[in-house]
Design a protein around this nucleic acid. Sequence first.
DNA 1: ACCTGAACACCGTTCAAGT
DNA 2: ACCTGAACACCGTTCAAGT
Lengths: 205, 205
Amino acid sequence: MTDQSASRRRILDATRRLIEADGVAAVSMRKVAAEVGLAPTAIYWHVGSREDLLHAVLDEMVADLPPIRARGAGARDRIASVARAARQEFLDQVATLQLATELGRGNELSFRTQVALAREMTTADLEGDDAVAALRSILFLVGGFVVIEEQYRQRPPGELATRDLWAEVDDPDIDPAIREAMTGPTDTDALFTYSLDRLLDAVLD
Amino acid sequence: MTDQSASRRRILDATRRLIEADGVAAVSMRKVAAEVGLAPTAIYWHVGSREDLLHAVLDEMVADLPPIRARGAGARDRIASVARAARQEFLDQVATLQLATELGRGNELSFRTQVALAREMTTADLEGDDAVAALRSILFLVGGFVVIEEQYRQRPPGELATRDLWAEVDDPDIDPAIREAMTGPTDTDALFTYSLDRLLDAVLD
DNA sequence: ACCTGAACACCGTTCAAGT
DNA sequence: ACCTGAACACCGTTCAAGT
C-alpha cells in the first residue's frame, strides 16, 4: 500500500480534486492525464480503466470518513445521535455520496451506520424482530433524507422547485393555509429532527 | 400538439423505447437516428439537443402516469393509501423515476403526491404547522424509500450487498441475533408498511 | 419545411513500440 | 517497470448545402 508509485499517487489525487470540484462527470482520462503531465494511455497502466480509477478514489474517500460515534447517555439519545451523525457526514461529504451512488456502492456507506445502530440497539437491550425493524426503518429514514436532500441541492438552474409549483395551485379541496405553507421553503434540518423524533417515539419500547 | 411531424413522433417513441429497455445512458443521438432511419443531425432539427430530447420524453412519461387516488374511509387509511400508491407508482415505472432523477426533475414527481396528501389532510381537518410537518415527513418517507429501493435494485453485479458485509462482522458489542437477522434479505414492502404505520401513529392526532 | 454530409472537438480503450 | 503515439470506435453539435 505504501510502495505505490508516485505517478499512481498523483493520478488518484488529481482525480479526487476533479470530482470534488466539478463532479464525477468532469473526470475524463485525458483531463486527468493532462493534470499529472502524462499521456492519457499511461493512466491505464497505473490504475486501469476509468471505472477502476473511480473505485480506487472512492476507496480512499471512504477510508477518510470520520467514524460514526454515539453521544449522550440514554438509549434514545444515543440512537438519535447516530442517525444525526450519519446524515451530517454525507451533507459534509457530498462528493463521497455522489461517487458512491454513481458506482452502485451506496450500500457500503449505509453499512457504517448499520453497524453503529446495531451497537446501540444491543447496548439498550433491544432484541428480536422489533429491534431489527426499528434499525432498518431508522436506516431508511436517514438514507432517504440524505439522498433526497442531495437531489434537491442538485436541481438544475432552470427547473422549478415544488414551492413554485404550489404557488399556482388553486384547489378548493385544499386548505389555503396548507397551500400557503407549501409555497415556503423546507427546513430540512428541522424536518429531519421532527421525523426522527416521531419515528423513535413509535419504534422504541 | 397533435400536428407534430411524423418524424418527431417516431424520434420520441424510439428514445422512450431505448430508455425503458436499456436506461438513459443508452440514448445517443446516433442510435436514435439509426432507429428511425434518419441522419443523426436530423434529430436536432426536430427536437433540439440530447437534453431537450430527454426532457420531451419525460414530459410524455409524466403525462402517462396514472393519477394518485386515495382509497378507504377514515383519514388515516386514505393518507396511508396515497403514500402506498405513490410508492407503487414508481416501483412500476422505474424508467420514469430514473429519467426524472437524471434531469433533476424528481421534484415534479414528488409534487403529485404532495397535492394528493394535501387534499386528504384538508378533508381530515388537519390544519396548521402540524399538518404541514406531517405532510412533509410522509413525503420524505415515500421519496426516501423509492429512491433507496431503486439504488438497491441497480447495484452492479460485482458489488456486495450489505447482508454480505454483515456476514463478516464479529463484534462482541452486537447482539448475535441482530447480526444474524441483518445477514438476511430485507422485505422492503413490509418495512415500508411498518415505517409508514409507525410514522402515522406519531403524526396523526 | 425537412434532411444530409462534412467537420470539429471531444470521449474510452488497445496495443505495438520505445526506454 | 514505466510511458508514448497511433489508431479505433464511439460521442454531441454546428453549419452549409441540398430538395
